[in-house]
Design a protein around this nucleic acid. Structure first.
Lengths: 191, 191
DNA sequence: TTTAATTCTTGCCTTTTGTCAAGTAGATTT
DNA sequence: AAATCTACTTGACAAAAGGCAAGAATTAAA
């Protein structure tokens, strides 16, 4: 039982494979730490990290046409963190991935991922399940943007991911929810 | 050269494989037609269609808590149509997939897809590329919902996918864009 | 062809959210 | 401790979008 135990458990929670296989997969990952405010990925780079976040909080953001930071997504503990498009298509990223708090976890590169896909067929299902999960999350966010008011979106975030509201500054959350800082500040006061 | 030529070309446009491979893959698909207003998938069913839409226009929709139809997405010609979550996770769908106009194309089942993944490794890349593409589309829709006004979203749809506005009734488009029928009707008049 | 149903438009008024600008509170630097 | 940042709040007003209801217009049905 090494310190990759949480990664092993995460893998087992995603696909039905043997514990032995999960451990072999986990062992090909490399531990890394990212300090608060540091970056896992910057604009114009080609993402090469498939990163299991064991502890901490991260976000992706990019700059809109007005040059404002827009937080696209938050990543919480026990999730895979990566920029799908840049990582899989091997193209330059438009987005940044940044640690909000000190973070640690385990990563592999694109090449290592493909080797694993080849060596461990069960890992293909894992990879697909992660993609499908991310896709679902994105769709359900879309749905929320269309069918819920800003207030409801805020309350939903508050009840499902309170850690985010605890650690992320208001302005990150505001752009993520699609409202201005002022509006979020007022919504928050009402609740 | 059979009538699957458009599917072969579509596959070749997504992944770099030999024409021969692409043809073999295309030949495992089965032709189907769906008449206007008919369904490829209904709520509570487990999706079993991985469908290449050669001709026609489709949409997915679901009912929100108020019982109103919300159009989640449109599918245009030369794209794969399927309900990612239900299809890959083998769970019941919350959404419908419906033909807006008469449609035709080629489908395979979940089982056939997996057989292809096994027999044709290049098809795995295809499958992944399709997933990544759908994910990108969903993300970019999210971005648009947050960073653009309803008017801009409408104009964007008008310039990128005019066929949709031509064939889909206003109410489908309104719920897709996240506005009421009245608002869309007014926006449209201004342009 | 008349009726019925659906889709779309429009007016009036309300609610939500945004913009701009000023001000407060903390944290950080010097 | 004073000065400087940054994050957040608040007020006054403007703009965007929604709710409701009535009325055209179009389509489908009887």
């Amino acid at each position: 039982m090494n310190n990759r135990a949480s990664l092993v458990n995460f893998i087992l929670s995603v696909v039905k494979i043997s514990k032995n296989d999960a451990e072999q997969i986990a062992n090909t990952f490399h531990p890394i730490e990212i300090e608060e405010k540091n970056y896992l990925l910057k604009e114009h780079e080609v993402s090469d990290d498939y990163f299991y976040l064991e502890r901490g909080l991260m976000r992706t953001f990019l700059y809109n046409l007005e040059g404002e930071e827009i937080t696209i997504d938050f990543f919480t503990e026990n999730n895979i963190v990566f920029e799908v498009t840049s990582f899989f298509n091997r193209i330059r990223s438009e987005a940044y991935i940044q640690a909000i708090t000190n973070c640690k976890g385990f990563r592999i590169s694109y090449e290592e991922l493909n080797t694993l896909f080849h060596d461990k067929p069960a890992f293909r299902d894992f990879g697909r399940a992660i993609l499908v999960k991310e896709f679902m999350a994105s769709q359900s966010r879309n749905y929320g943007m269309i069918n819920r008011t800003a207030k409801e979106r805020y309350q939903n975030l508050l009840s499902t991911e309170p850690q985010i509201l605890h650690y992320a500054p208001l302005k990150y959350v505001a752009s993520y929810l699609g409202v201005t800082d002022s509006t979020l500040s007022r919504l928050r006061k009402k609740i």
